[in-house]
Structure formats: structure tokens, C-alpha cells
């Protein structure tokens, strides 16, 4: 498979999506990311049983905070994805990239022009 996906995506590997911390997600936006998505394993496939479910809940909590402070929770999302779903990965990257393009750059990057990318 030689799938194409947007070049402006940076992948941060974590041993398990369940290790995602609210602070890390907020930090990515403080550091300038225009959009972030967390890819957790398919439901039922977690080695630690519930890591992906917990990650999903945490992502939703951070989305709430981002909405509350006016930053916008749409810049963050959670998807279930297995290592064998390259096609789906490319799709999700497109979904997020399109969404972020629509939203424009991270409002904290005042100098940036309206041409974002997903990180």
C-alpha cells in the first residue's frame, strides 16, 4: 500500500492511547498545533482492556474545555483505528485536514495565514 496522506501531519507515538493525559493534549495546542486527533485501538481490542475507552473519554473532556474557553473543541477528535487499517488512517487524516482547513490556523498562531495543517 502506497497511500497518500497530507504531508503536514506529525505522528506522535504512544504505547497506548490510554496513556494520553489532558495536559498533553492541551500542550499540543499551546505549542501551535492546528488540529489533533488521537487514534486508539478498535473497541474490544485493547491489550489493557479499557485504555482506548478511557482515551476517548479524556479526549471528549478536553474538547469540552476547548469549547468552554472559546478555542473550539472541533480541533480535537478521537478515532478508533487498527494498525491494519492504512486506508482508514488516510481517510481520517483527510477528514481532520479538511476540517482544520475550514477552521483556519490555531488562533494562538497570530502570525499564521489562513492555511493550516493537522499535526
Amino acid at each position: 500500500m502506497r497511500l497518500q496522506y497530507a504531508p503536514n501531519v506529525r505522528i506522535v507515538e504512544m504505547p497506548c492511547s490510554g496513556t494520553i493525559d489532558h495536559r498533553v493534549l492541551l500542550q499540543t495546542f499551546e505549542d501551535g498545533a492546528d488540529g489533533v486527533f488521537v487514534a486508539g485501538c478498535m473497541e474490544g481490542d485493547c491489550h489493557f482492556l479499557k485504555g482506548n475507552f478511557r482515551a476517548k473519554k479524556r479526549v471528549h473532556q478536553v474538547k469540552k474545555i476547548l469549547d468552554e474557553i472559546g478555542f473550539g473543541g472541533d480541533r480535537l477528535d478521537f478515532f478508533n483505528l487498527s494498525a491494519a487499517q492504512g486506508q482508514r488512517f488516510a481517510e481520517i487524516v483527510k477528514i481532520m485536514t479538511d476540517r482544520v482547513m475550514e477552521l483556519g490556523p490555531n488562533p494562538l498562531n497570530k502570525s499564521a495565514k489562513k492555511e493550516g495543517g493537522a499535526a
Binding site: D21, R23, L26, Q27, E30, I69
Partner: peptide
């Protein structure tokens, strides 16, 4: 500790948006 840092980060983001 964690909630304090989340609050700090949220406040910083808010304020930065307001320049």
C-alpha cells in the same frame, strides 16, 4: 496537581487568544 496544570493551560490558551 493535574487539575491545576489543566487549569493553568486553559487560562494561558484563553489569554493568548485575546492577545
Amino acid at each position: 496537581e493535574k487539575e491545576t496544570e489543566v487549569m493553568a493551560s486553559s487560562l494561558r490558551i484563553m489569554r493568548k487568544m485575546e492577545d
